[in-house]
Amino acid sequence: MGPETMAKAAPWPLDAWYVACTPDEIASKPLGRRICGQAMVFHRGKDGRPVALEDFCPHRGAPLSLGFVRDGELVCGYHGLTMGCEGRATSMPGQRVAAFPAIRAFPVLERHGFVWVWPGDPVQADPAKLHPLFWAESPDWAYGGGLYHIACDYRLMVDNLMDLTHETYVHATSIGQKEIDEAPVTTRLDGEEVVTCRFMEGIHAPPFWRMALRGAGLPEDALVDRWQICRFSLPSHVMIEVGVALAGHGGYDAPADKKVSSVVVDFITPETETSHWYFWGMARSFAVQDTGLTDTIREGQGRIFSEDLEMLERQQKNLLAYPDRKLLKLNIDAGGVRSRMAIDKAIAAEAGPLAAAAG
């Protein structure tokens, strides 16, 4: 299937930067990963920069990800065909390779602790289009995270993250509490972002935030003001500003020594129409040098997201089993609905010129 056909039919934007992997995943061997329906292989070239190629050997179609890296080039593990970083064969035992067909090379860059890939038109792949991440560019923030492979449509994860009402039920023992249900939700557009907000005042912190207060040297049993500000940006990123402040000190705007605040980081990279790669983490601006706290938060967050995983995968199975069932859209769904509208608009914009050219 060519890129033009995919741009018309695929349920994801192609002209965008997606998180492909973390640097450690390509530290010692090639990594094969399907992204936006396309099989890719990642490795490091001789200069140390990441490379992304089509995971297809032009000789017999073997996955290049089953091979190995030699002098910065990818050697097929089937018959030894060596592929250069631009997607052209450079050598093969006993063969002349100059006339071998090239494979596709994808634009790739390494920034903010991630390797990013552009699955669409390479001419449009401008590094300046990478979504800014203020927490990744500042020494005043610490980050820890992980990766889950989830067997559901990536848009179901967007829905999940843009409506945190589910925390009361799915995450009852960690970050959920009844006050989330009771607090009003507002949804708005902020430039190109979809923003959903919820604020809670004078409540007791749930277990996860009690741990965070304790780690920051604040009383864990004090009444707090809590906030959740979910920000969706294309192609499928959700950054959630979360935190608690000692009650009566300004909530979200409280001074740094009266609160613990973080950004829940969610990079959602489509794999197929019913699966995605979920790069999750938390960036925090308190106790930044405490690596032990980073590990503790990562472990706790990993458990929380594993609860989402089961719910989303079972939801996907239900939707596949009953494709004609109509789903409700409530006021709490506004963030997810608007995010899907933004995704659909981006897909339509990519397909428009191609459809006109085909016609």
Results as ranks from 00 to 15, higher is better:
Tyr322His: 14
Tyr143Gly: 04
Arg34Pro: 02
Leu293Trp: 10
Met162Gly: 04
Met341Arg: 13
Leu31Tyr: 07
Gly94Ser: 11
Gln316His: 03
Val115Arg: 05
Pro58Arg: 07
Asp24Gln: 14
Ile297Leu: 15
Phe114Asn: 13
Glu73Gln: 15
Pro23Leu: 02
Gly292Asp: 13
Tyr278Ser: 00
Gln301Trp: 14
Pro23Lys: 03
Gly281Asn: 06
Ala39Asn: 15
Ala245Pro: 05
Cys152Phe: 10
Val108Arg: 06
Ala356Met: 12
Ala39Phe: 11
Tyr252Ile: 07
Ala283Pro: 04
Lys46Ser: 12
Ala334Asn: 05
Gly67Gln: 00
Glu25His: 06
Gln95Ala: 10
Ala287Lys: 08
Asp221Phe: 09
Ile103Phe: 09
Ala247Leu: 06
Ala142Lys: 04
Asp140Asn: 13
Leu328Ile: 14
Pro122His: 08
Thr291Asn: 12
Gly176His: 05
Ile347Asp: 03
Ile304Glu: 03
Phe286Ala: 05
Thr196His: 08
Ala27Tyr: 00
Asp163Lys: 06
Asn331Arg: 13
His249Met: 08
Arg226Glu: 11
Leu319Tyr: 14
Asp15Ile: 06
Ala136Cys: 05
Glu73Lys: 14
Gly48Pro: 02
Met311Asp: 10
Ile35Asp: 04
Val260Glu: 02
Phe134Glu: 15
Asp308Thr: 02
Asp290Gly: 00
Thr22Ile: 12
Glu167Phe: 14
Val264Gly: 13
Arg70Cys: 09
Val244Phe: 00
Arg34Lys: 14
Ile180Thr: 01
Met1Trp: 15
Ala356Phe: 11
Ala7Tyr: 12
Ile175Phe: 12
Ala10Leu: 08
Pro30Gln: 08
Ala357Pro: 00
Phe68Ile: 10
Asn318Trp: 11
His43Gln: 12
Ala342His: 15
Leu31Ile: 02
Leu31Ala: 04
Leu74His: 07
Met282Leu: 13
Ser65Thr: 03
His43Ala: 14
Ala205Tyr: 06
Ile175Thr: 13
Ala357Leu: 15
Ala245Tyr: 08
Ala142Asn: 04
Val75Pro: 00
Val115Trp: 04
Glu25Asp: 11
Gly251Trp: 05
Lys129Asn: 14
Glu4Cys: 00
Val288Asp: 07
Cys21Ile: 02
His79Pro: 00
Arg96Asp: 13
